[in-house]
Design a protein around this nucleic acid. Structure first.
Lengths: 299, 299
DNA sequence: CGTTTCCATCGAAAATATCGATAACGATCA
DNA sequence: TGATCGTTATCGATATTTTCGATGGAAACG
């Protein structure tokens, strides 16, 4: 009898729905059905009366609900109790675009569960991150790229990452319905650093379409790029999360550029052997949660 | 995280030994090792300090021990709570040799866990039992035979069943060191009913060795056979459990007969689909336990 | 009366558990 | 010190279980 069955049961009871429970728990609906059936067989009773669109706990279901709540609460408590005692440190490699906007709240929450664990976020270039992950010198990496596919590396996509082409508010293309590559002829362009993968993808697209572009500046620092774009020195291609506030406040505008046909993901990369570490698992969970929340907010 | 891991953990802590815990729980030792490792990985801490021959719970292990005890207690409580509410009835087919000696204490214990469940024990001939099991008309059968091997039937051996050749106290072979088939020439023999499998195996053995035997009487009733043997009308081949008391009290003696090379088992048979029923599972557990206890007492 | 929204069922694929054999390791004793 | 015993860990093979995705069927909705 697996504890996840109890969790599924509690979530179904809470949501009054197998489907919603499955979504919340990250399963497909049929798996939750199976979980409940496992419980029903184990106890030999029906736990939910299923009417058409509604459902209700049976009497036995209600009795068990009380027990399961306690069991899960004890289990979670035990997890927290131990987490709080675990010390050590995690080295997290991540690209600069993320380190400032995405990670801080996650780190903060992590500290609540693992107060004795030291997190070190290292802003690094993506190829370097992958190399260190493979060497086991980083515990976890968070990058933005096409999905990494590698023998030794486990990849966990967090979310598709929209890239936006930002321009200063007065830019001639600012009001256009949609901007295509050819509209960018003789583009004046403030680029991220050379190792940046989405920069490379963008430039490949321009080159493929015969569009000339001129790199005005190259910076590792997103803040610097945003400033330069804001001063009208060119456009920049940046992850939306890095420019959300400037767009909202009108300091920059997003050009409605038809994306290159490449999907970028903010993704976690880690060495296959590091899964079992509970601190890392917890960090991954928090990251996934944060990504989910962001998605919902974006909608 | 499976609840059986917690159980393994508690048992290891109690026994101070992986090996003993495994025996008690019905696993092999390596499985228990795996269970503990699963827990250790899940929590990210070492739970037992293993010294050479001794072991000790770590501080984290002790903390978790308290939680796990509570969790398992809650789970068991929840099981009992529901068991008590389950009503229905079970039909149990069993051979006469067992119905009187083996089952009553088990039934008694069963009633404590499932007070609303009605048990009906039907003394039946073995072929009939198997037939009814296949037809789904019996919930469970308990027989004595070579291990049943059948597509639709699940077989659970309870224990090897020693057969003894019993004779009246004054029998000429009563004092012999060991009795072989050839010593039984012109044997006068009180047989169980014709459908009885161990009778068939015994007779095959005699025939194979060219030993003539004469069946004096044939009875379905063990009591009758014992009486006739006691009166000196011949010897009888019976399961030891059925004549334990008579042997102890000296009303009958066991001839030290070298067994036919066939192993008999008291075994549970049930339809493959009836596993999931918790009442049946509990009954099976009790039967297995009773068999274990008997084995230990016999030693 | 079709459409939508659920849950149950099923087969295939993936993940996991179990076993049995064996290695490794420490304790004990010669 | 070395041999042996009792114990746990590791490993590969096999069996079982879990998960998913597709599909079916039933009730509600418009």
């Amino acid at each position: 009898m697996d504890l996840i069955y109890l969790r599924s049961f509690l979530e179904v009871a809470r949501c009054q729905s197998f489907t919603k429970a499955a979504e919340n728990l990250g399963y497909v609906q049929s798996s939750v059905t199976t979980h409940i059936q496992k419980l029903e067989n184990e106890y030999g009773v029906v736990l939910f009366e299923r009417f058409g669109r509604t459902m209700r706990l049976t009497s036995e279901g209600e009795q068990l609900h009380r027990y399961f709540e306690q069991i899960i609460a004890l289990y979670d408590d035990s997890k927290h109790l131990i987490s709080r005692q675990i010390s050590g440190h995690l080295d997290i490699g991540t690209i600069e675009s993320l380190v400032a906007y995405f990670l801080p709240p996650v780190f903060n929450r992590f500290r609540q569960a693992f107060p004795q664990m030291n997190l070190q976020a290292l802003p690094l270039a993506e190829p370097h991150i992958l190399q260190l992950i493979r060497a086991g010198e980083l515990d976890i990496g968070i990058i933005m790229d096409r999905l990494v596919c590698d023998e030794d590396i486990e990849t966990i996509p967090l979310r598709q990452e929209p890239l936006v082409l930002v321009a200063p508010p007065g830019h001639p293309l600012a009001g256009a319905k949609s901007v295509h590559a050819k509209d960018l002829h003789d583009l004046s362009y403030i680029a991220t650093e050379q190792t940046c993968t989405y920069r490379a993808a963008f430039e490949n697209l321009l080159t493929a379409q015969g569009v000339a572009y001129q790199i005005q500046h190259e910076f590792g620092s997103l803040e610097a790029i945003k400033r330069l774009v804001g001063y009208g020195l060119g456009v920049g291609l940046l992850p939306r999360i890095a420019v959300d506030r400037e767009l909202a406040e009108g300091h920059l505008v997003a050009l409605p550029f038809a994306h290159p046909d490449i999907t970028f993901y903010t993704q976690i990369v880690l060495h296959r052997k590091k899964w079992k570490n509970p601190a890392i698992r917890h960090l991954i969970e928090l990251l996934a949660e944060a990504a989910e929340t962001d998605k919902r907010l974006a909608q």
